[in-house]
Write a protein that binds this DNA or RNA. Structure first.
Lengths: 341, 341
DNA sequence: GTGAAAGCGCTAACAA
DNA sequence: TTGTTAGCGCTTTCAC
């Protein structure tokens, strides 16, 4: 059984020799060219089976006319995070339909990791790139764009680069969620979110402010917290806010982990049924908590659809100027956002 | 700016021409061979920058001595499911350290998808494969194993094939969890799990039975449910069990979504603080619920470590016979499993 | 319908 | 230290 360990894989030449024909005919059989004599096809297939021959597609791609590798690169924040992995999965499905495989990698908010990974993906000659970017300057991609490599940005737009972009309606949706709280009688609403240097955080805060302004509520900086850096940080903010006089009656949490931290902090103080809470981003257990957590969620499969659609259209030669698509979100009331003032 | 759209990428030959040297010298510079005259290195690098040249690694691999592609294939149940994506992420980190990229795909419990994906990965000449298998017959991989392709199975062992395998201590851990319930005074414990045709489900049920037997409790088939096929199915079982006389006082849920369904069903009946519950697999929100959910969780990063370790050792020539590793799990009591009888 | 020869972009072997 | 040639496994071109 171990007789052929590390024996080099058979090549098309060996298949040709065994079936008594030329490598070109074997190639024709492999590619399903119909003009080959059925008897020859049979002999070739027999030899393929006998040798356990597996064509080397990377070798073929080298000479193949359009030079495609049928591989795309996908750069995510973190493969393990739910937003990333759902996006990945949706893109996998769409790529698979087209016989395209996906090389995915995590950036962990490290710009140099973004550049490194893109470099290795280009060295592998991926046909295109879908990027949830982390860098604040994408000028380094201008030459790639110019030489025809399709690149689509998702969740966050590029900086110093014109490219197709697919984002959620961050500002609009944050405004609507805030208005939902205002509609339930809240006039003092705390905001907890990421650093405003992050595109989505800035947009969501803009929407939050717009809602207050429209309702003629004034913005109290003492109940606004940017740059949340972990559960403890959020907990500390919430603790301090509720220890003071005139605490807020509602909280808008602008992002996944911030919402979780807020839930924890409220539970810890026994306030989860007294203080209204609306969060941005999905939480798998939102409906299992008490109260259920009202959330604004991104339509990930729509985002994947539009992003892949753009990428594959570009691959098929579409040459119009870069497009930006804003994908509507989904608001699901579950109780926490409907606690009245 | 669009002047060079679709202009073919420059090759090593053009870099050689522009820098007035040979392609071999350019190749040396690219590969950091130290014996090149510094002045030449400078000229070559200048030409590379000027042309925006990017080496084509797939072309290089074709001739390169060990024939490696520095790519591994990773087959998962579903890229978007938390177990899969965490495993993926952990493997990505370990692969990255070695300059290896990961091509991942979802099998969705479809055996033919497993075979198809493996075929395309072999056609791409991945250096090795890490598989969370779905097929019940891996004889089709014997030739690949024999010809030296390292394959490591994770979470479930292969059938009709000898290969490295990394699994959790499913039976032992299920037994310990059941004994934990018994230790809290429970004598009637319901079991809810996947079809026993699934390896992990069968193992966990074996552990469950062993605990009962050791405590001299008899197994009541009317409170055992296999082949859970969705939330409704689990809910229906739990509803019916608690509608009858002599209901169980505790539940062992053998898998992720089954546990969630059980939590929902218990909440629905207002029993979540009366009936003890221990689940297998991790839930992100386990500590946010009331009561917190006591869970047996797999040590995913240990599994990834061992699996990647094995794979890369094989790639480095390790030739000993196939190994099977059982990775201990982690039990975290959070309340639901400590409800007494 | 079939095959010989060239060549994809690179590295290996061997000279110089 | 540098360059020439061959060749990785395949597809293309073009002739038969």
């Amino acid at each position: 059984m171990n007789s052929d360990i590390n024996r080099p894989r058979p090549t098309i030449r060996e298949v040709a020799a065994l079936s008594g024909t030329s490598i070109k005919t074997v190639s024709r059989v492999l590619n399903g060219v119909s003009t080959v004599d059925p008897a020859l096809v049979k002999r070739v297939n027999k030899a393929i089976k006998e040798l356990n021959y597996r064509p080397n597609v990377t070798a073929g791609n080298l000479r193949r006319v359009n030079g495609r590798t049928n591989t795309i690169g996908l750069l995510l924040k973190d493969i393990a995070n739910p937003f990333s992995s759902e996006l990945h999965r949706a893109i996998e499905n769409l790529a698979r339909e087209r016989g395209v495989d996906v090389l995915a990698g995590s950036l962990d908010e490290q710009p140099e990791r973004e550049r490194d990974l893109i470099a290795t993906l280009i060295a592998r000659r991926v046909d295109g790139l879908i990027i949830v970017p982390t860098s604040s300057d994408h000028a380094y991609l201008q030459k790639e764009r110019a030489s025809g490599m399709p690149i689509v940005f998702v969740d966050r737009p590029p900086n110093n680069l014109t490219a197709d972009t697919v984002v959620a309606t961050n500002a609009l949706s944050a405004q609507a969620a805030t208005e939902h709280l205002i509609g339930n009688g809240h006039k003092r609403i705390a905001y907890v979110g990421d650093s405003q240097s992050i595109f989505t955080a800035a947009e969501r805060f803009t929407g939050f402010k717009a809602a207050l302004q429209k309702a003629k509520l004034k913005l109290d900086p003492s109940i606004i917290h940017h740059g949340s850096e972990g559960h403890d940080d959020v907990a500390q903010f919430i603790d301090s806010v509720f220890a003071r006089e005139n605490p807020p009656t509602a909280i808008f949490a602008s992002q996944n982990f911030v919402t979780i931290a807020a839930i924890r902090a409220l539970k810890h103080k026994g306030l989860e049924k007294k203080v209204a809470l609306v969060g941005f981003d999905d939480l798998a257990f939102a409906d299992l908590l008490d109260p259920g957590i009202s959330l604004v969620t991104q339509d990930i499969s729509a985002m994947a659809n539009v992003a892949s659609g753009l990428l594959f259209e570009r691959l098929n030669g579409k040459n119009s100027k870069a497009e930006t698509h804003e994908i509507p979100t989904i608001f699901t009331p579950r109780g926490s956002g409907e606690i009245p003032n």
